[in-house]
Protein backbone atom coordinates (compact mmCIF):
# COMPACT_ATOMS: atom_id res chain seq x y z
CA UNK A 1 0.00 0.00 0.00
CA UNK A 2 3.04 2.24 0.02
CA UNK A 3 2.04 4.21 -3.03
CA UNK A 4 -1.54 3.20 -2.80
CA UNK A 5 -4.25 5.64 -3.63
CA UNK A 6 -5.10 5.96 0.00
CA UNK A 7 -5.16 9.25 1.67
CA UNK A 8 -4.77 8.84 5.36
CA UNK A 9 -7.78 8.59 7.60
CA UNK A 10 -7.74 12.36 7.88
CA UNK A 11 -9.94 12.41 4.76
CA UNK A 12 -12.57 13.37 7.32
CA UNK A 13 -11.05 16.84 7.25
CA UNK A 14 -10.90 17.02 3.55
CA UNK A 15 -12.50 19.43 1.07
CA UNK A 16 -11.07 19.87 -2.41
CA UNK A 17 -10.63 23.63 -2.08
CA UNK A 18 -9.80 23.68 1.60
CA UNK A 19 -12.72 26.06 2.02
CA UNK A 20 -15.73 25.66 4.25
CA UNK A 21 -18.72 24.28 2.36
CA UNK A 22 -20.98 26.57 4.34
CA UNK A 23 -19.22 29.59 2.95
CA UNK A 24 -19.12 28.30 -0.63
CA UNK A 25 -22.81 27.47 -0.42
CA UNK A 26 -23.78 30.72 1.18
CA UNK A 27 -21.89 32.85 -1.32
CA UNK A 28 -23.64 30.91 -4.09
CA UNK A 29 -26.95 31.65 -2.44
CA UNK A 30 -26.06 35.35 -2.26
CA UNK A 31 -25.27 35.24 -5.99
CA UNK A 32 -28.74 33.81 -6.49
CA UNK A 33 -30.31 36.52 -4.34
CA UNK A 34 -28.68 39.12 -6.60
CA UNK A 35 -30.98 37.95 -9.39
CA UNK A 36 -34.03 38.12 -7.13
CA UNK A 37 -33.41 41.72 -6.15
CA UNK A 38 -32.25 42.69 -9.64
CA UNK A 39 -35.60 41.48 -11.00
CA UNK A 40 -37.50 43.56 -8.44
CA UNK A 41 -35.30 46.62 -9.01
CA UNK A 42 -35.65 46.23 -12.79
CA UNK A 43 -39.41 46.11 -12.40
CA UNK A 44 -39.32 49.35 -10.44
CA UNK A 45 -37.10 51.04 -13.02
CA UNK A 46 -39.06 49.75 -16.01
CA UNK A 47 -42.24 51.23 -14.54
CA UNK A 48 -40.63 54.55 -13.70
CA UNK A 49 -42.73 57.40 -15.08
CA UNK A 50 -45.52 55.05 -16.13
CA UNK A 51 -47.98 55.74 -13.33
CA UNK A 52 -51.17 57.33 -14.65
CA UNK A 53 -52.30 58.73 -11.30
CA UNK A 54 -50.37 60.10 -8.31
CA UNK A 55 -48.90 60.22 -5.81
CA UNK A 56 -45.67 60.15 -7.83
CA UNK A 57 -42.26 59.36 -6.32
CA UNK A 58 -40.97 62.94 -6.35
CA UNK A 59 -44.05 64.07 -4.39
CA UNK A 60 -43.81 61.55 -1.65
CA UNK A 61 -40.32 60.09 -1.11
CA UNK A 62 -38.78 61.54 2.03
CA UNK A 63 -35.05 61.96 1.41
CA UNK A 64 -33.94 63.30 4.82
CA UNK A 65 -35.71 60.51 6.66
CA UNK A 66 -34.41 57.79 4.33
CA UNK A 67 -30.88 59.21 4.52
CA UNK A 68 -30.99 58.66 8.25
CA UNK A 69 -32.33 55.12 7.92
CA UNK A 70 -29.67 54.40 5.29
CA UNK A 71 -27.03 55.61 7.73
CA UNK A 72 -28.53 53.39 10.41
CA UNK A 73 -28.31 50.33 8.20
CA UNK A 74 -24.72 51.11 7.19
CA UNK A 75 -23.75 51.41 10.84
CA UNK A 76 -25.44 48.06 11.54
CA UNK A 77 -23.01 46.54 9.04
CA UNK A 78 -20.13 48.10 10.96
CA UNK A 79 -21.54 46.60 14.17
CA UNK A 80 -21.77 43.25 12.39
CA UNK A 81 -18.06 43.07 11.50
CA UNK A 82 -17.16 44.20 14.99
CA UNK A 83 -19.38 41.46 16.42
CA UNK A 84 -17.58 38.88 14.28
CA UNK A 85 -14.27 40.27 15.49
CA UNK A 86 -15.50 40.00 19.08
CA UNK A 87 -16.52 36.38 18.63
CA UNK A 88 -13.21 35.51 16.99
CA UNK A 89 -11.37 37.08 19.92
CA UNK A 90 -13.44 35.02 22.30
CA UNK A 91 -14.82 38.10 24.03
CA UNK A 92 -18.34 37.45 25.16
CA UNK A 93 -18.73 41.08 26.16
CA UNK A 94 -17.78 42.45 22.72
CA UNK A 95 -19.91 39.81 21.02
CA UNK A 96 -22.96 40.76 23.05
CA UNK A 97 -22.44 44.50 22.62
CA UNK A 98 -22.03 44.43 18.88
CA UNK A 99 -24.59 41.74 18.13
CA UNK A 100 -26.94 43.79 20.27
CA UNK A 101 -25.96 46.81 18.18
CA UNK A 102 -26.88 45.00 14.99
CA UNK A 103 -30.24 44.03 16.45
CA UNK A 104 -31.01 47.56 17.61
CA UNK A 105 -29.90 49.26 14.42
CA UNK A 106 -31.68 46.69 12.26
CA UNK A 107 -34.87 47.13 14.27
CA UNK A 108 -34.51 50.90 13.99
CA UNK A 109 -34.29 50.56 10.22
CA UNK A 110 -37.46 48.48 10.24
CA UNK A 111 -39.09 51.15 12.42
CA UNK A 112 -38.24 53.80 9.85
CA UNK A 113 -39.69 51.60 7.14
CA UNK A 114 -42.88 50.97 9.09
CA UNK A 115 -43.26 54.72 9.60
CA UNK A 116 -42.60 55.35 5.91
CA UNK A 117 -45.15 52.77 4.78
CA UNK A 118 -47.93 54.00 7.06
CA UNK A 119 -47.17 57.58 6.12
CA UNK A 120 -47.46 56.71 2.42
CA UNK A 121 -50.77 54.96 2.97
CA UNK A 122 -52.04 58.08 4.73
CA UNK A 123 -50.92 60.13 1.76
CA UNK A 124 -52.98 57.90 -0.47
CA UNK A 125 -50.27 55.65 -1.90
CA UNK A 126 -51.04 51.95 -1.55
CA UNK A 127 -49.95 48.90 -3.46
CA UNK A 128 -52.99 49.27 -5.70
CA UNK A 129 -52.82 53.01 -6.36
CA UNK A 130 -50.47 52.99 -9.35
CA UNK A 131 -47.48 51.07 -10.74
CA UNK A 132 -45.15 53.19 -8.62
CA UNK A 133 -46.98 52.05 -5.48
CA UNK A 134 -46.99 48.41 -6.60
CA UNK A 135 -43.32 48.25 -7.52
CA UNK A 136 -42.15 50.43 -4.60
CA UNK A 137 -43.94 48.49 -1.89
CA UNK A 138 -43.03 45.07 -3.26
CA UNK A 139 -39.35 45.97 -3.73
CA UNK A 140 -38.80 47.68 -0.37
CA UNK A 141 -41.15 45.22 1.34
CA UNK A 142 -39.03 42.31 0.12
CA UNK A 143 -35.95 44.07 1.39
CA UNK A 144 -37.63 44.72 4.72
CA UNK A 145 -38.61 41.06 4.97
CA UNK A 146 -34.94 40.16 4.48
CA UNK A 147 -33.95 42.59 7.24
CA UNK A 148 -36.59 41.05 9.51
CA UNK A 149 -35.21 37.57 8.88
CA UNK A 150 -31.74 38.91 9.61
CA UNK A 151 -32.83 40.46 12.91
CA UNK A 152 -34.34 37.14 14.02
CA UNK A 153 -31.09 35.42 13.06
CA UNK A 154 -29.08 37.98 15.06
CA UNK A 155 -31.32 37.58 18.11
CA UNK A 156 -30.67 33.83 17.94
CA UNK A 157 -26.92 34.44 17.85
CA UNK A 158 -27.19 36.95 20.69
CA UNK A 159 -28.94 34.40 22.88
CA UNK A 160 -26.31 31.82 22.00
CA UNK A 161 -23.58 34.31 22.93
CA UNK A 162 -25.32 35.16 26.19
CA UNK A 163 -25.42 31.47 27.06
CA UNK A 164 -21.75 31.13 26.25
CA UNK A 165 -22.43 28.98 23.21
CA UNK A 166 -20.56 31.21 20.77
CA UNK A 167 -16.90 30.36 21.15
CA UNK A 168 -14.20 31.36 18.65
CA UNK A 169 -14.61 27.86 17.17
CA UNK A 170 -18.18 28.84 16.24
CA UNK A 171 -17.21 32.08 14.55
CA UNK A 172 -18.17 30.63 11.17
CA UNK A 173 -21.81 30.82 12.26
CA UNK A 174 -21.42 34.52 12.87
CA UNK A 175 -19.45 35.02 9.69
CA UNK A 176 -22.23 33.45 7.59
CA UNK A 177 -24.89 35.51 9.36
CA UNK A 178 -22.69 38.52 8.69
CA UNK A 179 -22.49 37.74 4.97
CA UNK A 180 -26.27 37.72 4.90
CA UNK A 181 -26.50 40.96 6.84
CA UNK A 182 -23.99 42.78 4.64
CA UNK A 183 -25.72 41.54 1.53
CA UNK A 184 -29.00 43.01 2.72
CA UNK A 185 -27.07 46.21 3.35
CA UNK A 186 -25.59 46.41 -0.17
CA UNK A 187 -29.02 45.80 -1.64
CA UNK A 188 -30.18 48.84 0.29
CA UNK A 189 -27.22 50.86 -0.99
CA UNK A 190 -28.48 50.15 -4.51
CA UNK A 191 -32.14 50.82 -3.65
CA UNK A 192 -31.32 54.09 -1.90
CA UNK A 193 -29.54 55.37 -4.98
CA UNK A 194 -31.78 54.02 -7.73
CA UNK A 195 -35.14 54.54 -6.05
CA UNK A 196 -34.72 57.50 -3.74
CA UNK A 197 -31.94 59.68 -5.09
CA UNK A 198 -32.31 59.22 -8.85
CA UNK A 199 -35.86 60.39 -9.37
Amino acid sequence: MARAAVIAQDDHHYTSTGLSSWKVGFWTFIGSECLLFASLISTYLVYKGRSVVGPYPEEILNIPLTSVSTFVLLMSSLAMVLALDGVQRGSRKLSLIWLGGVILLGSAFLGFQAYEFTHFVHEGLTIGTNVFGSSFFVLTGFHGAHVTGGVIWMITLWIMAARGKLAPADSLKVEIAGLYWHFVDIVWIVIFTLVYLIQ
Binding site: V53, I127, G128, N130, S134
Partner: peptide, 17 residues
Protein backbone atom coordinates in the same frame (compact mmCIF):
# COMPACT_ATOMS: atom_id res chain seq x y z
CA UNK B 1 -49.60 40.54 -5.74
CA UNK B 2 -51.80 41.49 -8.67
CA UNK B 3 -54.25 38.73 -7.99
CA UNK B 4 -54.33 38.67 -4.21
CA UNK B 5 -53.56 42.24 -3.18
CA UNK B 6 -54.76 44.34 -6.10
CA UNK B 7 -51.33 45.46 -7.34
CA UNK B 8 -50.98 46.78 -10.91
CA UNK B 9 -47.93 45.04 -12.30
CA UNK B 10 -49.67 43.61 -15.34
CA UNK B 11 -52.69 45.95 -15.25
CA UNK B 12 -52.65 47.99 -18.44
CA UNK B 13 -55.16 50.63 -17.31
CA UNK B 14 -52.91 51.53 -14.39
CA UNK B 15 -49.77 51.77 -16.53
CA UNK B 16 -48.66 48.17 -16.04
CA UNK B 17 -47.20 46.26 -18.97
Amino acid sequence: FDRFFGANFYEVTAGGD
